[in-house]
Structure formats: structure tokens, C-alpha cells
Design a protein around this nucleic acid. Structure first.
Lengths: 119, 119
DNA sequence: GGTATATTAAACCATATGGTTTTAGATCCG
DNA sequence: CGGATCTAAAACCATATGGTTTAATATACC
């Protein structure tokens, strides 16, 4: 069905790459909202906001339920799990880099204790 | 210095949205490589690959050390930690969705046991 | 110096992205 | 019916993206 197995991941990461779309997701986190409600706080026209929602739908991060003239949007976080799975493989790497930072900070503290605070 | 605090996150997610760039990262995971080595397995011209590396550099996911005519690239996973932090806020949501899936599968298994396998 | 190698830069192209405004459909409501 | 509301669709625009090919630059090597 899906030709490129990583195509979904492309769509998810691309969807997350725009702050307006992340804001939309953040607000959907608290529950369903229709397009008007979603677009209102965004500093752009309604059609622009609507297009962002479509990008989220393509990434299957948002599902739409039409009720009369209101299009109710709901978050579906499953694809975020896929993104998380991909990141997971690198967790050791970025955690190590924070450990190294911690080590530096510890070293600085130790130096402070030994020689007293400077400046 | 950074006008939009989410700009880094935009760059990171955008960088991850292309399979060639994810592949580059995956290979840098195993250690430093220069541009020629990185571009060789990609089905595109050298300049195209070089541009992808620039996108990764802009997202601070890759650092470059020039040694003679060889540009050695090294992964820096810290920005992936930022991406992970953002995702973290939604973890509960996607885990719940998997639990629901598990519940459905459990239910199906229980039915199987009760009534025997059909077909 | 001369040649091969690694990389950048430039020019170009097609398509995508992100926005706008305007027009057109549905649907609700008095 | 008629008007207000919610949304889509279309047309348009500027810029970005992702690729190419060709030229230029810098380094290594004989």
C-alpha cells in the first residue's frame, strides 16, 4: 500500500516543522475544535489555517468529523509514536551529550569549592 | 539572539523530514564521515547530498571539521533531545491509543478462546 | 608545474510551501 | 425565502525545496 515505508515519517516530521501546526496540535490536545476555533488565534487568514490542518491530516495527526457546517478536528497522536520510535535510536547519543555537560558543570562546581568563588 | 524560540525546533523537524537526511544521520551515528563518503550511497548527485548536509548543519544536528580537502562530518544529537522534549508532552496520548489497540487485540483473543478459531 | 580529488558556487529548472484575496457551496436560522 | 456562518476552492504571488549540470577553488600528490 505504502510505497516508501518512510513516507509516513516524512509527513509527520514535515507536519511538525511549522510552529502554527504545532500550536494547532497543542490546542487539540485539550479536545476537539472546529476549523474556525482553530484558526482564530493564528495570525493568518482562515484559508491558510485550513491548509495547515490539511497538512496535519495528511500526516494522520488530525482526524476530521463533519457535523453540519462545523468540521470538528481531533488529534490522533499515534504517528507521534512513530516519530518517537525513530528518535529513540539516538537517545543514547543525546543523553551522553547531556552527561558530558553535567560533568563539566560538576567540574566547575568542584573548582568553586576548592578555590572559593571568584570575581 | 534567537527571535523565535521555536525556530530551532522548526529546523530540526524540517531536517528530519527528508529520508536522505535521516539516512545521513543514521550513518553518522557510527562515526565521522566526509562528504564524499556520505554522498556515495545516496541516489543523487554530490551537490545535492552536500545541500542536505547543510540543512542538517543549520539544524545543528551535524558539525563539520575541515581537514585538508576533506570535510569531516560528525553527528550532534542534542537537538534531537529538543525534538524529543516536544514529543514528550504527547506521550500519554499516543500510549493511550496503543493501549486501546491492545485492549481490542485482547478482546479478539478472548473471543477466539471462547468460541474456537473460525474459517 | 601538472593532474587528480574534494568541495563549493552558480545557474537553472520543476514543484512545493505558505501566504493572500476572491468566489462558490453548504448549512443553520429567523 | 433570505441572510448569516462555516468551509472549500480557485487564482494568484513570492519564496523555498530538491534536484540537475557546469564552472571555480582549494588541497594533495607525483
Amino acid at each position: 500500500m505504502v510505497l516508501d515505508p518512510s513516507a509516513q515519517l516524512n509527513d509527520v516530521f514535515h507536519a511538525l516543522a511549522h510552529p502554527a501546526r504545532r500550536e494547532i496540535l497543542r490546542r487539540l490536545f485539550d479536545g476537539e475544535q472546529n476549523l474556525s476555533e482553530l484558526s482564530a488565534p493564528l495570525k493568518m487568514s482562515f484559508p491558510a489555517a485550513s491548509k495547515h490542518v490539511r497538512v496535519l491530516e495528511k500526516a494522520k495527526l488530525v482526524r476530521r468529523r463533519i457535523e453540519g457546517r462545523s468540521h470538528l478536528c481531533r488529534i490522533d497522536a499515534k504517528p507521534l509514536g512513530k516519530a518517537n520510535d525513530w528518535l529513540e535510536g539516538y537517545r543514547r547519543l543525546w543523553e551522553e551529550s547531556f552527561q558530558r555537560l553535567d560533568a563539566v558543570l560538576e567540574e566547575m562546581k568542584a573548582q568553586e569549592k576548592k578555590h572559593g568563588r571568584r570575581r
